[in-house]
């Protein structure tokens, strides 16, 4: 009796193994080469990492589910390039854990939104999208202006990002909270630290129009203003 059971059991496990074997190969063949792709993909030597404030903004973008309606991936099609800007390169999202390429454009693509509108435009649009774009179906995000930004744990966020391969330095991790505040508080010592660690070109200003208050709106606008601008590789490719 035991022997029979054993044989039957082996057969169902055999079926299971066959399913795993046959099922996993397709994915493996397509995905494995992508992990060696950095040998062939475009190079972007000047590419910088997200500042703590921008990362916090990105996390708000994720939290609010913006990716459900906005893509961040301009395809290599003429109309897309003319509508949104140079097509997206693989290298541009190499620090994006996770990527936010999206799958649906209920609203427009945002891959080149950085620098396209002013901070004031963004804040006004978030508070009441239909005041700026009457037919818009975007929800109002006025509450982001009321929510203070949580900054005390940003160092741990940066450390987790480093663990998955983003080159944050010890200095950046140690100063994460100060840098988040500094990026939205121009003129002070903290602001200089941001420029020192993340480069002179980093946006340092009061993003939400409320000096002295660090809100979630600051973070989200800071993030949007850098989307597509961590490197200019796409513009160089387009210029060629």
């Amino acid at each position: 009796m035991f022997g029979l059971h054993y044989k039957l059991e082996r057969k169902s496990i055999g079926l299971a193994l066959a399913i795993i074997g046959i099922g996993s190969i397709g994915g493996l063949v397509e995905i494995a080469p992508l992990f060696t792709i950095d040998q062939t993909v475009e190079d972007a030597p000047g590419m910088r990492v997200y500042t703590p404030l921008e990362l916090a903004g990105r996390n708000i973008y994720v939290r609010e589910g913006c990716y459900a309606c906005h893509s961040q991936m301009i395809r290599t099609l003429r109309d897309e390039v003319e509508r949104y800007g140079p097509y997206s390169l693989a290298v541009e999202s190499k620090y994006d854990h996770p990527m936010l390429w999206g799958s649906k454009r209920t609203g427009p693509d945002l891959a080149r939104i950085g620098g396209k509108y002013s901070d004031q435009w963004h804040v006004a649009h978030f508070v009441n999208p239909r005041e700026i774009v009457p037919p818009s179906v975007m929800p109002s995000y006025a509450r982001l202006l009321r929510n203070p930004l949580r900054t005390d744990d940003l160092g741990r966020h940066l450390r987790a990002m480093r663990a998955v391969g983003v080159p944050y330095t010890d200095d950046m991790i140690a100063n994460a909270t100060a840098d988040a505040i500094g990026q939205a508080t121009p003129g002070g010592e903290a602001a200089d630290g941001v420029s020192k660690r993340y480069g002179e070109a980093t946006n340092v200003r009061v993003f939400d129009g409320l000096p002295g208050e660090l809100t979630e709106m600051d973070a989200l606008v800071a993030y949007l203003q850098i989307v597509g601008r961590l490197t200019d590789a796409a513009y160089k490719t387009a210029g060629k």
Binding site: I31, A90, S93, P98, M99, H157, V164
Partner: peptide, 25 residues
Amino acid sequence: VPVGLGSAKSYSLFSGVQDAMTQWW
């Protein structure tokens, strides 16, 4: 990689194009 035991947030091990392919796989 989770940010910590007391945080719901985690960061995907993959990024960019690898993450996109893994996600749609």
